[in-house]
């Protein structure tokens, strides 16, 4: 992802003439916010899209759109939810425009047949199960259980009613649990 060279940075610095264009945050505030949120956002993007390369691209796009959004935020949590909403919409739009993603990099980490199952095997099971879910189910589960977001925050990010989150989450969780049991049986059967 960080394929920018020193000469690129130099060029960027040279091009920056000091007259900053209007963005929604000042540099210090942005850098602090980015440092606090980018790793988690990358995880969210890579898991709901199932594509690491896409997550790299969408991460920067999401922050750019946040900076260009002429919106006042009441708190850091509000800003973060808005960022996740942008990210969710970006993934949705991207997946509408292209064929379903088959993330071979994840499958490549599968242990060879006959090897004992370990953390890598379990992680591959989780990713395989996630890929069988709908994008909204992946987002719901990730926000609720990997991030610990409240139903209100999830509703805000996904653009659904707060009252609907409970039911949607229940169904997604049940489906994911069934898929995980299935994946584990399959993994166990290979041994």
């Amino acid at each position: 992802m960080s394929d920018i060279t020193l000469s690129d940075i130099g060029r960027l610095q040279a091009a920056a003439d000091g007259s900053d264009v209007a963005l929604a945050m000042d540099e210090d505030a942005f850098r602090g916010f980015y440092d606090r949120t980018s790793t988690a956002l990358w995880g969210y993007l890579s898991r709901i899209s199932g594509d690491r390369q896409l997550a790299d691209d969408l991460l920067q796009e999401a922050y750019y759109r946040l900076l260009r959004a002429g919106q006042e935020f009441e708190s850091e949590a509000h800003r973060r939810n808005y960022l996740y909403r942008i990210a969710t919409n970006l993934v949705r739009d991207t997946q509408r425009q292209r064929r379903p993603i088959h993330d071979n990099t994840h499958l490549a980490s599968l242990p060879a047949e006959g090897n004992p199952p370990g953390d890598a095997d379990r992680a591959a099971d989780v990713r395989r199960a996630m890929r069988k879910l709908k994008p909204r189910e992946r987002a719901l589960l990730w926000l609720a259980y990997a991030h610990g977001s409240s139903h209100g925050e999830i509703a805000d990010v996904l653009g659904v009613k707060t009252a609907s989150v409970k039911l949607l989450l229940f169904r997604a969780r049940r489906r994911m649990a069934a898929l995980l049991r299935g994946e584990r049986r399959t993994s166990g059967g290979r041994l």
């Binding site: 980015y34 790793t39 992680a123 996630m130």
Partner: peptide, 22 residues
């Protein structure tokens, strides 16, 4: 499962520095 995968994602991620994104 998801928390374990989130921990994995944290080690995999290499977001560009905030200065470059800015």
């Amino acid at each position: 499962a998801l928390l374990a995968d989130a921990a994995c994602a944290r080690t995999e991620s290499a977001p560009p520095s905030s200065a470059i994104v800015w």
